[in-house]
Amino acid sequence: MKVLHINAGLEDGGGKNHILSLLSQFDSSVAELLVLEEGIIAEEAKKLGITVHTLKQQSRYDLSILKRLAQFINDHSFDIVHTHGARANLIFSLIHKKVPALWFTTVHSDPTLDFMNRGVKGYVFTQLNLASLKKADHLIVVTDSLIKPLCDLGINKEKITVIYNGLQFGSPLVKATKTNKQFTLTCVARLHPIKGHELLLESLDAARFSDFTLNLVGDGELRSALEKKVQELNMQDRVHFLGFLNKPQVDVTIKNSDLTLLASYNEGFPMVLLESANQKVPFIATSVGDISLLVPDKQYGWCVPAGSTESLTKALNEAYDEWENGTLETKGELVYQLASTQFSLKKFYDATLALYETFIHA
């Protein structure tokens, strides 16, 4: 069996970690990676010993690569092509009838929302991606909650399999200081409307404590608007925009935090929460996707309704009280035990391999 994973190559969030962690488990003779452009994914994949190919697409509109891509897949006799992301989906949809390989695609979030607030261009990209998804032989979703939206688009439920993200859990890093002088919070998410940063800032402004530090890890289209929001709320000394960080830097930032935050309006099963659990740092997250599987009750952390400033503020106040009382770390230990048992990288890999083999031997 030979599998080719395809991605645009510029992904720098949970999708990147999903692809790289999965491919790191496969023998290089079984699974390889092809990126449309050189970028962070190719760079990190090579460091992991993953076989990487680059098509050097000049832009997302460059279709001159189609013939080369089809020839490459056929010449290397790949049995399965596994795409990740809207651009990879579209590009392969244009040639999939010219190659005998089975087509799998992973859906990480609600595809109707991926290009929200992007105007006409966003609408067009959304429609192209939805049309591409319908052509795939099989879809993998990272959360059970994505099945219904996909079925509503006309995709047969039998073509969909849920495989949760997994992480290689290990010994947490050592915290720089045993106790932070200020309540230290970190949110790792691209600066996009779907991630709820503005609501997070408003909830912090409404909280009854002000001695906090908030690290915002990630970049995106909302950066200037969020920087302006921080100024309006007079939080510029407490909110730090750290931009893009590599994985080791993210791990260190999380470990040196008391709590991580995710205020998204839509998610699948975020890798960043597994990364937080691996560092034994509890979190407040919105109850979207299957996040509640990591927070079965309040012993483990907080799962609040999406879009509710009141609920998020209440959770922040409760977390602050636990930080002051020295009981917050207990939640971190519990969520680590749960996540490392239920959502290991081995389970993620085994489920993916089993699905591939089911189709290959059908």
Rank of each mutant, 00 (worst) to 15 (best):
Q71S: 14
V230Q: 13
P270A: 07
N7Y: 03
L353F: 14
M271R: 01
R208G: 05
K314N: 14
R118V: 02
L102C: 04
Y349P: 08
G307D: 15
L294V: 00
K175A: 03
I6W: 04
V230N: 03
L204K: 01
L261T: 09
V124W: 09
N256C: 01
T54S: 15
L214N: 00
E310L: 12
H240W: 02
Y164L: 03
F78Y: 15
D152R: 02
Y164E: 01
N246K: 13
D62L: 09
V295M: 07
I40D: 00
E275R: 09
V304R: 04
G119K: 09
L48K: 15
E38Y: 14
Y356W: 11
E322G: 00
L293P: 00
R87M: 06
T177D: 03
S145W: 04
L63A: 05
L334V: 00
P270R: 05
I163P: 08
Q231N: 13
E310F: 13
V142A: 04
D110M: 00
V99Q: 00
F72D: 09
L102V: 10
L233M: 01
S311G: 02
A319P: 12
A131E: 05
L66M: 10
P149K: 03
S292V: 12
V99M: 01
P296Q: 07
L150F: 01
A176N: 07
I147M: 08
W103H: 13
H18E: 05
F283Y: 11
V335K: 08
A277W: 12
I40C: 13
D79M: 02
N215D: 08
Q337E: 11
Y320P: 02
D219R: 07
V30Q: 14
Y265K: 07
M235P: 03
S224D: 14
F212L: 08
A315Y: 05
A351P: 01
F209V: 10
Y265N: 12
F209A: 14
